[in-house]
């Protein structure tokens, strides 16, 4: 798993590549927690290069979303494809999260 971030005005765009499984999910969650701790509140998580996610990954996303909600923050997802999109759909994550085709559409939606 590899995580990179970039800033788009007040939004932090997080790109995650590789696999979020039971081994790497804590690292992913800690990374996002550290960004929240330093004050970031608006996130777009780009999953376009993510090859794999299991329920451990979903749990880390949900925990992050709950933390952000408590801080009046916002989390959006972009670029879902293949198996990651399928796991999100089966788990009902499309109905609880704002999901966009691209970072640009996620940024432009108010």
């Amino acid at each position: 798993m590899e995580i990179t971030t970039r800033q788009e005005k007040s939004t932090t765009v997080v790109m995650v590549q590789g696999r979020i499984d039971a081994v790497t999910a804590p690292e992913f969650e800690n990374y996002l927690s550290s960004l929240i701790a330093k004050g970031d509140r608006r996130f777009i998580v780009n999953l376009g290069a993510l090859e794999y996610i299991s329920s451990a990954g979903l749990r880390s996303i949900l925990a992050t979303a709950k933390r952000l909600k408590a801080e009046q923050g916002d989390i959006r997802f972009s670029g879902l494809q293949g198996p990651v999109e399928e796991v999100f759909k089966i788990s009902g994550f499309y109905s609880i999260f704002k999901i966009f085709d691209s970072d640009a559409s996620a940024l432009n939606d108010v």
Binding site: S55, L58, L62, I90, S91, G92
Partner: peptide, 20 residues
């Protein structure tokens, strides 16, 4: 089976593994 219709605040991920 987990209730996949709840919102972020109420949602639990327990049970999602078996559901998958």
């Amino acid at each position: 089976e987990p209730d996949t219709t709840l919102d972020v605040a109420e949602r639990q991920v327990g049970g999602i593994g078996v559901f998958l």
